[in-house]
Simulated scan of single mutants.
Amino acid sequence: MTPGAQVTNNEAENRYEIKLNGQVVGMADYQPEGDTLIFTHTEVEEGHEGQGLGSELIQAALDDARSQGLQVVPACQFVAAFIQEHPEYADLVPQER
């Protein structure tokens, strides 16, 4: 994790936030649906892109979802790409029947 970075789940806003030295610099919005989190949008503030903060944010969010026994739907392109690049998270995505 980047020094000074912290990821929290802001349940009131339905989003995971990554803070750098106490300031929110990125967020991953989700829509809860039963035992599933549908990730709809990920954003890292201008000036903080390209530092790996988005990946740290998504990894922490997926780890949190796993710890709660939740599944995830990567409706957001960034989350989908992260899961594709990190197959250890593929089990969180419900399989089509």
Results as ranks from 00 to 15, higher is better:
residue 33 E to C: 03
residue 33 E to W: 04
residue 34 G to F: 00
residue 34 G to Y: 07
residue 34 G to E: 04
residue 35 D to M: 03
residue 36 T to E: 01
residue 36 T to K: 02
residue 36 T to M: 03
residue 36 T to F: 00
residue 37 L to E: 07
residue 38 I to D: 00
residue 38 I to S: 00
residue 39 F to K: 03
residue 39 F to G: 03
residue 40 T to P: 08
residue 41 H to A: 11
residue 42 T to H: 05
residue 43 E to W: 11
residue 43 E to K: 09
residue 44 V to M: 03
residue 44 V to D: 01
residue 45 E to G: 14
residue 45 E to A: 12
residue 46 E to A: 13
residue 46 E to N: 15
residue 47 G to V: 10
residue 47 G to Y: 09
residue 48 H to N: 09
residue 48 H to G: 02
residue 50 G to R: 14
residue 52 G to E: 08
residue 52 G to V: 15
residue 53 L to P: 12
residue 53 L to H: 11
residue 54 G to R: 11
residue 54 G to D: 08
residue 55 S to L: 10
residue 55 S to D: 09
residue 55 S to Q: 12
residue 56 E to C: 14
residue 56 E to T: 15
residue 56 E to K: 13
residue 56 E to Y: 15
residue 57 L to I: 07
residue 57 L to P: 07
residue 57 L to N: 05
residue 57 L to C: 07
residue 57 L to M: 07
residue 58 I to N: 00
residue 58 I to P: 02
residue 59 Q to E: 07
residue 59 Q to R: 12
residue 59 Q to F: 05
residue 59 Q to V: 05
residue 60 A to C: 09
residue 62 L to H: 04
residue 62 L to Q: 05
residue 63 D to R: 14
residue 64 D to W: 06
residue 64 D to A: 13
residue 64 D to M: 10
residue 64 D to E: 13
residue 65 A to M: 09
residue 65 A to L: 07
residue 65 A to I: 12
residue 65 A to W: 03
residue 66 R to E: 08
residue 66 R to N: 05
residue 66 R to T: 11
residue 67 S to Q: 12
residue 68 Q to V: 14
residue 68 Q to P: 12
residue 68 Q to T: 12
residue 68 Q to R: 15
residue 69 G to S: 10
residue 70 L to R: 10
residue 70 L to H: 05
residue 70 L to E: 03
residue 71 Q to K: 09
residue 73 V to C: 01
residue 74 P to R: 00
residue 74 P to A: 01
residue 74 P to D: 00
residue 74 P to L: 00
residue 75 A to V: 08
residue 75 A to W: 01
